[in-house]
């Protein structure tokens, strides 16, 4: 028990806060606490969760990727056109993943070889990718995506769980393994902790950053494909502003904005918390204007978790010494 606490302090604090929040919502409206509503929450965290876990990896290196919403849109459009024109759905998904990888590679190229600041570089590609999406589609939505494609993500299994929930969990597990179990993971944290020191320790900084940006964009591509399956259509305007929610989820989950810190589990719980908040406010029928206010306050409060976690630690130390 103590071990779990030591290893996952931040995650547990956020989880606890999420549970408290869920209890409040249940107290205000009992229909919040139902299996179906639980599924709704899971479904609604999928897009943000997948985007956030990719975003987190770039943030861990001390960077950021603001272009995820646009990568999301481009992938949606392209995969939609492929399937509408009769391409095999599985092949279309591969095309989507490749697009994600290529766009991520370009982001990586800008921040490593071109030595641009990630914020500026991806701010640029954000507009660039969005523009490409408009140019390619002429602003027209792509509709009537065949069910053969949609069912891959949208189909249901036992308990009414949709496949895309499984997709999200798989993405998180991959991120967990990447960060916690592989050499690249150690390199990612090292670069975020001190890039110069990592470089002088013989870490191939550029290569590792490429991995981060490609991973992030591939996540965005997966999210885009899930959205396509879920809506059955794609638009060039999709996903605008999604990057901010992704950053929020990662930050709430304990990702250090300056880099070097962050876990897949934390980001999962961060995204879960935002979904609970979103669904909860709809269930208890909070006015739209107030939803912005409350979400803002929760994000600010969540940034205090860092201190709460330290306080609990100090408290435990004192009790032990007393």
């Amino acid at each position: 028990m103590k071990n779990i606490w030591i290893k996952n302090k931040r995650e547990l604090v956020v989880l606890f806060a999420t549970i408290v929040m869920a209890c409040v919502f249940t107290a205000l409206n009992a229909t919040f606490f139902t299996y179906n509503n639980f599924l709704t929450i899971l479904q609604q965290m999928v897009l943000n969760g997948i985007l956030a876990v990719g975003m987190m990896v770039t943030i861990i290196t001390g960077g950021i990727d603001l272009s995820v919403g646009c990568t999301f849109a481009i992938t949606g459009i392209t995969v939609a056109s492929c399937t509408v024109n009769g391409m095999n759905p599985v092949l279309a998904i591969l095309v989507g993943l490749v697009i994600g990888a290529v766009l991520g590679f370009f982001n990586g190229f800008l921040v490593t070889n071109m030595k641009l600041q990630p914020f500026i570089a991806t701010l640029g590609t954000m507009s660039l990718y969005r523009g490409i999406a408009y140019v390619v589609t002429g602003g027209l939505p792509v509709t009537s995506v065949p069910d053969s494609y949609r069912n891959i993500f949208n189909g249901k299994m036992i308990g009414g769980i949709r496949y895309y929930i499984i997709v999200m969990i798989v993405v998180f597990v991959i991120a967990y393994i990447l960060l916690a179990k592989t050499r690249t993971g150690d390199y990612l944290y090292a670069i975020g902790g001190n890039e110069e020191a990592a470089k002088l320790s013989g870490v191939n900084v550029n290569k590792t950053k490429y991995v981060a940006y490609i991973f992030c964009s591939v996540c965005a591509a997966i999210a885009g494909m899930v959205m396509l399956a879920s809506l059955g259509s794609a638009e060039a305007t999709a996903g605008s502003g999604y990057e901010t929610n992704a950053i929020a989820a990662a930050a709430i989950g304990g990702t250090r904005m300056a880099g070097g810190k962050g876990t897949a589990l934390g980001t999962f719980i961060g995204a879960l918390m935002l979904a609970v908040l979103k669904v909860g406010m709809v269930v208890i029928n909070v006015d739209s204007f107030w939803q912005f206010v409350v979400t803002g306050i929760i994000i600010i409060v969540a940034s205090y978790f860092e201190f709460v976690q330290q306080d609990i630690e100090k408290f435990m130390v004192r009790r032990k010494t007393a």
């Binding site: 406010m281 006015d287 107030w290 206010v293 409350v294 409060v301 205090y304 306080d311």
Partner: peptide, 29 residues
């Protein structure tokens, strides 16, 4: 340090009660 913990707790409660107020206000609104 307990003060800070309390402050955070209070703010969170405030946010949620705002949410609740929001919802009642809403019907009135």
């Amino acid at each position: 340090m307990r003060k800070r913990f309390l402050a955070v707790l209070l703010t969170a409660t405030m946010a949620l009660s705002l949410a609740a107020c929001g919802s009642t206000n809403k019907t009135a609104g």
